[in-house]
């Protein structure tokens, strides 16, 4: 403000007049000329003040746009603030998590929409209740009596044959993975509905390291019609007639 030229002479005179004790700590080495040693301090302009100019409307607009942009960006890639979501572009999972009502539930609703995952859960329940007593929880069966399901060609090859077997059962000697088994499997045609049967078939085709594809309730329904003429359990020859012999790999 007051940038009038400094008159160093007045101030300097005052310095010379007063023998000020406060100056004692100020040692500017050999120079004794008070006038010149304080030159840099005397010539200084005022200490900074702050003006009162208001913030311009344009600037407020810029700030608003920036904030708006930030909000949009955050909304788009927020990842539901979920510690498990690593891909900011995962819109569907984010949407699922959002409707699922919270961070922790992010995975579950997404899984609920996947029919195979549901089938696997239902299939496990059906298997434990009905099949595990013979084929065992491990799917390994029992030597000489109940054939294994793990890596079994009956399970993994023809889908139609597998459904037929489940519907009507089997009896008599059968060769599975080079071993002969002689037992009897009941028909499940009446106990299990299409959904349950498809689920258990899907389950045994994908559990224990098996890598078969899923089986749908529609396939089961079609098989009920197709194999309706079968009135008793299949034997090995009849089973092999469906979709041809087992291909040994």
């Amino acid at each position: 403000m007051s940038s009038e030229p400094n008159p160093p002479s007045d101030a300097a005179n005052e310095f010379q007049e007063q023998e000020n004790p406060a100056l004692r700590g100020i040692d500017y080495s050999e120079s004794t000329n008070v006038n010149q040693i304080h030159e840099s301090i005397l010539r200084e302009k005022v200490d900074p003040q702050e003006g009162e100019e208001p913030i311009s409307l344009v600037l407020i607009g810029i700030i608003g746009v920036t904030l708006l942009f930030g909000g949009i960006y955050l909304g788009r890639y927020w990842g539901a603030f979920d510690g498990m979501i690593y891909d900011e572009r995962a819109r569907s999972v984010v949407a699922g998590a959002a409707t699922g009502g919270g961070a922790g539930a992010a995975g579950a609703p997404a899984a609920a929409e996947d029919p195979v995952a549901v089938a696997l859960k239902l299939g496990k329940r059906v298997y434990t209740a009905n099949c595990a007593s013979c084929h065992q929880g491990s799917g390994q069966g029992a030597a000489g009596q109940y054939p294994p399901l793990v890596a079994s060609d009956y399970v993994l090859q023809s889908e139609r044959r597998l459904i037929a077997l489940l519907l009507h059962g089997a009896e008599g000697p059968m060769t599975v993975k080079g071993n002969v088994y002689n037992g009897a499997m009941p028909a499940w045609e009446k106990q299990l509905n299409d959904k349950q049967m498809a689920a258990v078939a899907t389950y045994i085709r994908q559990e224990w390291g098996n890598n078969g594809g899923p089986i749908t309730p529609e396939q089961v329904a079609a098989a009920r019609v197709e194999f309706a003429s079968q009135t008793k359990a299949y034997n090995e020859a009849q089973l092999l007639a469906i979709d041809g012999p087992i291909v040994v790999k």
Partner: peptide
């Protein structure tokens, strides 16, 4: 320490402006 003012990069228009 000759008292002729600050070391400036160029000569200012007026002495009043002189400041480092």
């Amino acid at each position: 320490a000759d008292g002729v003012g600050p070391t400036l990069l160029a000569k200012p228009e007026s002495a009043a402006e002189a400041s480092s």
